[in-house]
Computed example of a mutant assay.
Amino acid sequence: MTEQRFSRRRLIAVSGAALAVPAVARAQDVPAAAPLHRRNTMSFVPQNWQDHFDGLGIAAIVADTTSRALHFWSGDGETYKVYPTSVPRTDELTKRGYTEIVRKRVGPDWTPTPNMLKEDPTLEYMPPGPGNPLGTHAMYLSWPAYLIHGTHDTRKIGRQSSSGCIGLYNHMVEELFAMAPVGTQVRII
């Protein structure tokens, strides 16, 4: 009878193989048509502009707070884009319905609202720049204090993290800013 030696390397190799077997076995059970990712925190739900507007007008935006996605259609219907967003932290902060872009600004400054100051009295006015919560571009909606804007804090995208606004990565809001003119119809759902 030969004596078998157990080394640390052999123990690690055998343990790794034993742990891999259930994963390989589970992979065999996945149907061929299954999506490549099972868990996507920003599970985009496709939208059709016809479900929300009578016509495209000069352009149309649907901000879906459930899937945390902003859908954009150009007025001619040729351009359709979907962007990941941050959404309001709570339902109480979420305003839903129809509005439109009434003003746009590159390098927006930021002033906390009275409700924000109640929550955090240390907040202060911020000029444009890296610390500004509105990022590099802002599109103001017809509802006071509600915007579609960028953010320097990229951790917020895909999360319930805003005080009511719809936030995008700066490079994405810059692209949207160039495509969505003042008067673009917006629906928040």
Rank of each mutant, 00 (worst) to 15 (best):
F6G: 10
R10G: 11
V14G: 01
S15H: 09
S15K: 10
G16Y: 10
A17M: 11
A17W: 03
A18P: 13
A20G: 00
V21M: 07
V21Q: 06
V21D: 01
V24K: 07
V24Q: 12
A25P: 05
A25G: 08
A27M: 14
V30F: 12
P31F: 06
P35L: 09
P35D: 11
L36C: 14
H37N: 12
N40A: 05
T41S: 14
M42C: 10
S43V: 12
S43I: 10
V45W: 07
Q47C: 12
N48S: 13
W49G: 01
F53A: 02
F53I: 04
G57S: 03
I58M: 03
A59R: 00
A60D: 08
A60N: 04
I61K: 04
D64P: 01
D64Q: 04
T65N: 12
T66G: 13
R68E: 08
L70T: 04
L70F: 07
H71I: 10
W73L: 01
S74F: 04
G75R: 02
G75I: 05
D76V: 02
D76A: 03
Y80G: 05
Y83N: 09
P84S: 08
T85I: 15
T85R: 04
S86L: 09
S86G: 15
V87Q: 00
P88H: 00
P88Y: 05
T90A: 07
E92M: 11
L93M: 10
G97P: 03
G97E: 00
Y98K: 12
Y98A: 14
Y98T: 13
T99I: 07
E100T: 12
I101C: 00
I101R: 07
R103M: 11
K104V: 15
P108H: 06
D109E: 03
D109S: 06
M116H: 00
M116Y: 00
L117W: 07
L117D: 03
D120M: 06
D120F: 07
P121A: 07
T122L: 04
L123D: 03
E124G: 01
M126G: 04
P127Q: 06
P127S: 09
P127F: 02
P128L: 03
G129L: 11
G129Y: 07
P130L: 00
P130M: 03
P130S: 00
G131D: 13
N132K: 02
L134W: 01
T136L: 02
H137C: 02
A138T: 02
L141D: 01
S142N: 10
S142T: 08
P144E: 06
Y146C: 00
I148K: 04
H149K: 00
G150V: 07
G150S: 10
T154L: 15
T154E: 14
R155S: 15
K156Q: 15
G158V: 10
R159G: 06
S162Q: 10
G164Q: 01
C165M: 13
I166H: 00
I166C: 05
L168M: 13
N170I: 11
M172T: 09
M172D: 15
V173P: 08
V173M: 09
V173N: 09
V173E: 12
V173C: 08
V173D: 06
E174I: 11
E175T: 14
A178C: 08
M179R: 14
A180R: 06
P181F: 05
T184V: 14
Q185E: 15
V186N: 11
I188T: 00
I188R: 08
I189D: 14
